[in-house]
Design a protein around this nucleic acid. Structure first.
Lengths: 249, 249
DNA sequence: CGACCTTTTGAACGTATTCAACCGATGTGG
DNA sequence: CCACATCGGTTGAATACGTTCAAAAGGTCG
């Protein structure tokens, strides 16, 4: 077991990765990253998983489709997007990820990442070698349970996006998108109503199945309707209830 | 541990479930359901997981959104759809499942199923109490690994659907849908070109983000173009290459 | 400062939807 | 077993929603 982990540790060093003194116990993302009870003794082992961090500058790729899968990544700070490419080169944004969220789940099944992850602002991620997660999961049920929960909730999230793309109008999609961002920022201690979009209109459009011009027009219409204020990438939500109404009409 | 599993076993009996002599080792779905090497000894334990089967008639619900989550279901025979409902009652089909595929993954994270599963034809499923899967996963790495793979591949599948819904035209969506069905039927030993659709035009439309009339029109157009023959629910693919071309144009 | 990228807005267009009618298949009850 | 009701599927015509093409202004970064 130990030997296996040591092997993975050797294989895994990423470009730009650096060893550091981990401290999940004190990490302010602990509630997001490890949402369960872990004893002090186990915690020491958990911290061995986070064997490196990796810094990304805006535009840097964390992993690309086809790269060999070795690790999951937990976002410590920053903002990323994940995308998939289809045969003829069209790109679909599959999600936007922020602090405390996990990346790379799509690589477990096939041994190589299925999509791309790109930083939309300077970011830092914890590198979590997957072989170590699996090993620890066998010893610490709370870890096992947490991994399964994370995977399952990603599936639930994806089904929500299918609902969005398959059954909702453009207005509803953008309203749902803004409310989702607001909720996630709130959970991280940021303002629920005032935030900076890290992605372009085109990326929002790709995620929502719309063209960038449509997204821009919708922002303008929401502003005219008094639901939000927009100025380029800065958004202020003025009428949460009004946005929620957009969802069900 | 044992006690915990016993508890779950007591909680879990489903209506219509019945005890039976399991035999995964001889199941003709083994390659689909357990795609990994397992020793004879471990196999005996695996078969304890499949502690019941459940028969469904067409239209029967396997589980509903909000039902307490206790088990995953492996389809032994038949055909099901999974759906999610949004706040105002609109239904989105999230997938169609056939023999060897797993249902209920969306329940792991929250403790209750997030969507609905309904039989589109008379079907039979193996009931796999999740607490037993987790316990066995801790002891048998191949089981653990398999569960992670299944979860991850569902995420990859979902991302493919997002690509479908977000970036592809109606023609491309239907072509992709037919090719996907064809591939999956082939893997189960059925004809790649000749099959019976178990779902209605409306259900296909919901899955593909289209209206039922649009689906019907596309079937007609594909027939006119010599790509397929359609008669109600019976489809014959006449030009696989032509369908694949539809994907990249 | 200049080049480039992003965003906004308008006008014309096209794809998929809506509404409607009709037909065929299926299934139920008298 | 047939009659009838219901459901599922097809097709047409009008409409609507989001896209495309285009131009211009606003930001950002070297």
């Amino acid at each position: 077991m130990r030997a296996q982990v040591a092997t993975v540790t050797r294989i895994s060093p990423q470009p730009l990765a650096r060893r550091f003194e981990s401290s999940c116990a004190n990490c302010n993302l602990r509630e997001l990253c490890l949402p369960m009870r872990i004893g002090d003794e186990d915690m020491a082992r958990v911290e061995q998983i986070v064997f490196a961090r990796r810094r990304l500058k805006r535009g840097d790729s964390l992993f690309k489709s086809g790269d060999p899968f070795n690790a999951l990544y937990a976002i410590r700070s920053g903002f990323l997007k994940t995308t998939v490419l289809n045969a003829d080169g069209r790109e679909q944004v599959t999600g936007f990820q922020m602090a405390g969220e996990l990346l790379g789940l799509d690589g477990i099944g096939s041994g190589s990442y299925n999509g791309n992850a790109v930083a939309l602002e300077d970011s830092e991620v914890c590198v979590l070698p997957f072989a170590m997660i699996e090993e620890l999961g066998r010893d610490i049920p709370a870890i096992q349970r947490n991994l399964h929960s994370v995977l399952s909730r990603e599936i639930v999230r994806d089904h929500g996006v299918m609902m969005l793309l398959g059954s909702m109008s453009a207005e509803e999609r953008l309203a749902a998108f803004l409310l989702n961002l607001s909720r996630r920022f709130t959970a991280r201690g940021y303002s629920a109503s005032d935030f900076h979009l890290r992605m372009t209109r085109e990326e929002i459009g790709s995620y929502l199945g719309l063209k960038l011009e449509t997204v821009s027009r919708l922002f303008s219409r929401f502003q005219t309707d008094g639901l939000i204020e927009v100025q380029q990438k800065h958004v202020r939500i003025r009428d949460i209830a009004g946005l929620e109404q957009q969802l069900h009409s």
